[in-house]
Simulated scan of single mutants.
Amino acid sequence: MEINFRTKEESNRIQEENFLKLSPVERIYSFLQLIYFFKDFPSQTEDENKNFIIVIKDAKHTMG
């Protein structure tokens, strides 16, 4: 195991560079692995409803 001491900006830059080195398919798989890793991560919300709603408003279809 290697420990590196970096600034937040430097760490973010290195992570971004490593991510951009991946092929588009590898990027998708990396994203899916991240989602899977965080699926059981504890959150502060106690909402039982696991769904979310996307609302797109424009001039023609505004409600109310």
Rank of each mutant, 00 (worst) to 15 (best):
E46T: 04
N51R: 05
T45S: 15
I35D: 00
F52D: 08
D47C: 09
Y29S: 10
S43G: 11
F52M: 13
I28F: 05
Q44K: 13
P42H: 01
S30K: 02
P42Q: 01
T45Q: 06
F41L: 14
I35Q: 07
F38S: 13
P42M: 02
D40R: 02
E46Q: 04
T45E: 09
F38D: 09
Q33I: 12
I53L: 15
L32S: 03
L34H: 03
Q44R: 14
E26L: 11
K39W: 03
N49F: 07
Y36T: 08
F52A: 15
D47T: 08
Q44L: 14
I28W: 02
I35V: 09
F38I: 08
P24E: 05
N49L: 10
E48R: 14
L34S: 05
P24A: 06
Q44D: 13
Y29L: 14
V25R: 07
R27L: 10
I35N: 01
Q44W: 12
Q33N: 11
L32G: 02
R27G: 03
Q33F: 12
P42S: 01
R27W: 02
F38V: 10
K39F: 12
E46M: 10
V25W: 07
Y29G: 05
E26Q: 11
L34A: 11
I28T: 05
I53V: 15
S43T: 03
N51S: 12
Q33C: 12
Y29T: 06
E26W: 02
K50T: 12
F52E: 06
I53R: 13
P24Q: 03
E46W: 04
I53P: 00
V25S: 15
I28P: 01
S23Y: 06
I53E: 11
K39N: 06
F41P: 04
E26K: 08
N51I: 08
I53S: 10
E48A: 14
Y29W: 05
I53H: 08
D40W: 01
V25H: 07
Q44T: 08
E48N: 05
S30A: 15
E48K: 07
L32W: 01
S23P: 06
E48M: 13
S43P: 03
N49A: 04
P42R: 00
F31P: 02
Y29P: 01
S43Q: 06
E46K: 09
F52N: 08
S43Y: 02
I35F: 00
F31C: 09
L34P: 02
E46L: 14
S30G: 02
V25F: 15
Q33A: 09
E46G: 10
L32I: 12
S43E: 00
K39L: 10
T45C: 14
N51M: 09
S43K: 12
D47I: 13
F31N: 05
F41S: 12
F52V: 13
R27C: 05
E46Y: 12
N51T: 09
K39H: 02
D47E: 11
K39C: 07
P24M: 07
E46A: 14
E46R: 01
I53A: 08
Y36L: 15
F37C: 03
P24V: 11
K39S: 05
L32E: 04
F31G: 08
S23E: 06
Y29R: 10
I28G: 00
L32V: 07
I35W: 00
R27P: 00
L34N: 07
R27N: 01
S30D: 06
N51L: 15
F41E: 11
F37A: 13
P42A: 02
S23C: 15
K50Q: 14
F41T: 04
